[in-house]
């Protein structure tokens, strides 16, 4: 029952990060947000509150939106993890990213990685959620700048496009 992969008190774990299999050493008490930022340069994962209230640290694990500030690093061993670094690109942004830009929904930008990942998680499961479902899915992401209207306009534009595209 001892950890087979313990090295100097740290445990070796493997997982898939943005489509790539990776490994790292984590201590039992290390938070996932710190592992992602320090070991994998995933600086999109923001530490807004460190207590699970703001959603800025949202990532996707096995298709589900979760808060990396409340997870220990070892909790994602063998799982499929996505951060904003793996979503879209400068030349080919994800529809949610493009919609946020098109609608002027980004001010300071701090909340945006979490917003994109929460939206992506729900839209991957259901491309045409109704308003209640979408609002419910975004209830864990706070924004101090925009007042949410333009973010909402961006998200509904993506849903409308999905609906028109027959999804």
């Amino acid at each position: 029952m001892e950890n087979e992969n313990t090295i100097l008190g740290a445990i070796q774990i493997g997982f898939t990060l943005n489509g790539v299999e990776v490994e790292t050493l984590v201590e039992a008490d290390e938070m996932l947000i710190d592992v992602l930022r320090r070991d994998f340069n995933c600086l999109s994962v923001k530490a807004g509150c460190h207590e699970g209230s703001c959603g800025a640290c949202t990532i996707i694990v096995d298709g589900k939106p979760v808060l990396s500030c409340l997870l220990r690093g070892w909790q994602i061993a063998d799982k499929d993890v996505w951060t904003l670094e793996g979503v879209g690109s400068y030349d080919a942004p994800h529809p949610v990213q493009q919609a946020l830009v098109d609608n002027g929904a980004v001010q300071c930008g701090f909340c945006i990685p979490g917003m994109v990942l929460s939206a992506k998680a729900v839209l991957d499961e259901n491309p045409v959620p109704d308003d209640d479902e979408m609002r419910h899915a975004m209830d864990g992401n706070l924004c101090r700048c925009t007042g949410y209207e333009k973010i909402w306009d961006a998200l509904t534009s993506v849903i409308d496009a999905n609906r028109k595209g027959g999804k």
């Binding site: 699970g52 929460s118 729900v122 419910h136 864990g140």
Partner: peptide, 12 residues
């Protein structure tokens, strides 16, 4: 379940 906390917490 629907009223518990936030979407992320509900998935964790």
């Amino acid at each position: 379940a629907k009223k518990m906390s936030t979407n992320q917490i509900r998935h964790m």
